[in-house]
Design a protein around this nucleic acid. Structure first.
Lengths: 144, 144
DNA sequence: GACCTAAATGAAAAAGTTTTTCACCTACCA
DNA sequence: TGGTAGGTGAAAAACTTTTTCATTTAGGTC
């Protein structure tokens, strides 16, 4: 389940952050979008709801939300600062290299590999980044 | 095995690109490095070999090499514009978040997961990005 | 080896993105 | 209804990436 705006506001408040109209507007944009959005794209959409918000505020809000794990930062061909609404669970992405569509999946089953690596290298493994790239059904058709 | 400079030069020539000293210098840096490098980091290293090369040339060369699949553009947690030598062999990295040390490993065993995802989503999966993050033995000691 | 030409280069500037600074404002608690 | 820590917007700084253009050069041809 994707986190709702309400749930995110709750977590923000519990973490000691203030709930400003700007943050609400940014949240509304992110939680209502299915794609990943760049800060500029978010700003553009936010300005329909709340004109006058600065790009700086968007950047700052995204950083807060991202640090709390409430939104998800994506590394796409367009740049390093695309964000999308986060899932509650640990998850990964399968991204279409052609159209950018993103599918989420949850069972990565890397525990065994992680243990093996840990034993071999002495590393204390804290996290992992796993992303699959390919072509979605539509883009495969488009080529054919 | 990582692609050698010689092999890359051969492909470049066959593809109709000229072999300039600048390109040679950039190739030397990339093929001799074990890490992912940003354009600026590449420029810095290149300037030891061939002072006076412009960052523009680095960008242009990286684009050519990347388009030919001779180097690999990485979208990692650290950034979106890092490049590394393309390996003939499939591999991944285990990176220390403290000191940046990188250990490579090869058996990722993601075939099963890949098949499952492919079947579920209709994606034709072309590649994956897998990176583990943690603390190496030394950095664990340093904290204790 | 000298010549020719398309491709490549470097410098400068433009365009874009992200961060920093700072004076002012406001959400929220007592 | 204050007081205050935290948040905001504007401007500017700091970076990164792309574009432009005059000059140079790699590599083929004679």
């Amino acid at each position: 389940m994707r986190l709702t705006e309400k749930k995110i506001v709750e977590v923000l408040r519990q973490s000691g952050y203030k709930i400003t109209p700007q943050r609400r507007a940014i949240l509304e944009v992110i939680t209502h979008s299915q794609e990943h959005l760049t800060p500029s794209a978010i700003l553009e959409k936010v300005n329909y709801i709340h004109p006058g918000i600065g790009l700086v505020t968007v950047y700052r809000t995204l950083e807060v939300l991202s640090n709390l794990g409430l939104i998800c930062r994506m590394h796409t061909a367009e740049g390093c600062h695309s964000y999308k609404g986060a899932l509650q669970e640990h998850h990964h992405h399968l991204t279409c290299t052609e159209c950018g569509r993103v599918v989420e999946f949850t069972n990565c089953d890397l525990g065994e590999l992680e243990e093996r690596l840990s034993a071999q290298t002495g590393f204390n493994i804290e996290s992992h980044l796993l992303e699959f790239l390919g072509r979605c059904r539509d883009c495969q058709k488009a080529v054919a």
